[in-house]
């Protein structure tokens, strides 16, 4: 029943579009309606009312909110993200450059954390209840809650200041090759790896433990299959599927963590861009940046759901009978 998959895809896509739309409303409310008077927020409480009115007119904030929203969304759909107040130039090029940088950093993070996290999770599950498991679980759990700025400082101190193994700056010299870039990205990536490791390991462990105790695993053992085959063909195949979704959900989180890491390492990514816009009350830049981050999350979860659907026969071939 391939059309069951088609229906699932269509439904999932529709929901993603709906989420994106709601996201734009939330971001709009947060940046345009909540502050009340954007110009007043920018210029401060002591500013001349005439200057405030003039700025509001310049920002287009003197129009009714619905009109502002529609023109904003209309602009977004044609690729126009508005004018930055702080830089007095279009927002879009800034976002684009920052997004590329952030994706490089996030890619680096996942390159490291996915294999380590899944490996540790499987290892813990196979030794469930024994010291290895406890060690991985407690370490993973404790590392997960350490704020990035805390672990960053420890890492900087050890690797950049004392040992001097890694460059402190995340920004590589112009024209640097991919290897040099990765070397510069390693230190900023590690705090995020630390935060995500525990989560991925824990989810992998839970999925694997469940599959290990499942009846179908017992069936496989009772067929007399070698343990390796039982593990790869019956246990991991069913255990790792849900982990994909979990990892995808963390992509969005990683982009949030970038705010702290990028600002700490002075890296020109989407996180530091959003933070800078927030500090400067550059609302056009802020809303564009936040929307891009949210949109990225929506796209990755969609991709993960699609991947799961492709791999899971229950979704691929439709419901019971």
């Amino acid at each position: 029943m391939p059309h069951a998959l088609g229906r699932f895809l269509a439904k999932r896509l529709g929901l993603s579009l709906l989420t994106l739309w709601l996201l734009s409303v939330v971001v709009f409310l947060g940046t345009q309606v909540l502050p009340g008077d954007p110009a007043r927020a920018i210029l401060g409480p002591l500013a001349d009312p005439r200057a405030v009115a003039a700025l509001n007119e310049q920002l287009g904030a003197d129009r009714p909110p619905v009109e502002i929203y529609l023109s904003w969304v209309g602009g977004l759909l044609t690729g126009d993200m508005g004018q930055s107040y702080a830089y007095r130039s279009p927002v879009a090029p800034f976002i684009e450059a920052a997004l590329v940088n952030s994706l490089k950093l996030a890619g680096m993070v996942f390159l490291i954390v996915v294999p380590i996290g899944i490996g540790a999770g499987v290892l813990a599950a196979l030794h469930a209840g024994r010291p290895v498991d406890r060690a991985i679980s407690v370490a993973g759990l404790s590392l997960t809650v350490i704020p990035e700025f805390v672990s960053s400082i420890a890492l900087i101190l050890v690797f950049a200041v004392i040992l001097r193994w890694l460059p402190l700056s995340a920004t590589w010299p112009p024209g640097a090759g991919p290897l040099t870039q990765m070397q510069h990205l390693l230190l900023p990536a590690l705090p995020l790896v630390i935060v995500l490791f525990g989560y991925i390991a824990r989810m992998t462990r839970a999925g694997t433990v469940e599959a290990l105790s499942a009846d179908y695993t017992r069936t496989a053992i009772l067929k007399g299959l070698p343990w390796r085959t039982v593990l790869s063909r019956h246990v991991l195949r069913n255990a790792l599927l849900p982990t994909i979704t979990v990892i995808a959900a963390q992509m969005g989180y990683a982009l949030g963590g970038l705010v702290v890491v990028e600002s700490l390492f002075r890296y020109q990514g989407i996180g530091s861009l959003v933070l800078g816009a927030a500090r400067a009350k550059d609302f056009a830049m802020l809303q564009a940046g936040v929307l891009v981050i949210g949109g990225f999350f929506v796209v990755t979860t969609l991709a993960a759901d699609l991947a799961t659907a492709m791999l899971d026969p229950r979704l691929r071939t439709g419901g019971r009978r």
Partner: peptide, 19 residues
Amino acid sequence: RAKTVAMVFQDPGRALNPS
């Protein structure tokens, strides 16, 4: 297990590998 003994449990839906 491979040759001599075979076993059938309650709840066949869970005894088969879903994937």
